[in-house]
Amino acid sequence: MTLYQFNLLDLNNKMEAVNQYGTFLDNYIGQNEKCNCYAIDMFFVEVVYDPIHNTITEIRAFKHGHRLDKYSNLCI
């Protein structure tokens, strides 16, 4: 599956693809959101949860960039 193919899916099918093909990498807990990061083939997927309502609010797919910074344990 490519990033382009993944982005064409609706929310339910994106979550199904994450469950079927994704490899869990890490999670992030912030004040307003909880995120799980997965790898699928050559891209990353971030599943964003609303911690108050315990619902998935967004699924973000990307190849690189600042979205990965929050999963780093480095403190600068």
Rank of each mutant, 00 (worst) to 15 (best):
M1P: 09
T2M: 10
T2D: 15
Q5P: 02
F6Q: 08
L9F: 04
L9S: 05
D10R: 10
D10A: 12
D10S: 13
D10H: 14
L11V: 05
L11M: 10
L11C: 01
L11H: 04
N13R: 13
K14H: 11
K14P: 14
K14A: 10
E16P: 03
E16M: 08
V18H: 01
V18W: 04
N19Q: 14
Q20W: 07
Q20L: 14
Q20M: 11
G22S: 07
T23I: 13
T23D: 12
F24V: 03
F24S: 11
F24Q: 08
F24Y: 15
F24H: 13
D26P: 04
D26Q: 11
N27Y: 14
Y28G: 03
I29P: 01
G30P: 02
G30E: 03
G30T: 04
Q31T: 14
N32A: 12
N32V: 08
N32L: 12
E33Q: 08
K34T: 14
K34W: 13
K34M: 13
K34S: 12
K34V: 15
C35H: 06
N36E: 15
N36S: 13
C37R: 10
C37T: 05
C37F: 01
A39K: 15
I40L: 10
D41E: 15
D41K: 12
D41C: 06
M42P: 03
M42K: 14
F43V: 02
F43P: 07
F43R: 05
F43K: 00
F44V: 10
F44A: 12
V45P: 06
V45T: 08
V45I: 13
E46P: 09
E46F: 08
E46H: 08
V48I: 14
V48P: 01
D50V: 10
D50G: 07
P51H: 10
I52T: 06
N54K: 14
N54L: 13
N54I: 10
N54Y: 09
N54S: 13
N54F: 08
I56Y: 05
T57D: 00
T57N: 02
T57K: 01
T57A: 04
T57I: 06
E58C: 05
I59D: 04
I59S: 07
I59V: 15
I59E: 06
R60K: 13
A61K: 12
A61I: 09
A61C: 12
K63T: 05
K63N: 01
K63C: 01
H64I: 01
G65P: 02
G65Q: 02
H66T: 05
H66M: 04
L68P: 05
L68D: 02
L68C: 05
D69G: 03
D69M: 07
K70D: 00
K70M: 06
Y71F: 15
N73E: 09
N73H: 08
L74P: 00
C75P: 00
C75A: 09
C75S: 12
I76K: 11
I76T: 08
I76R: 11
I76V: 10
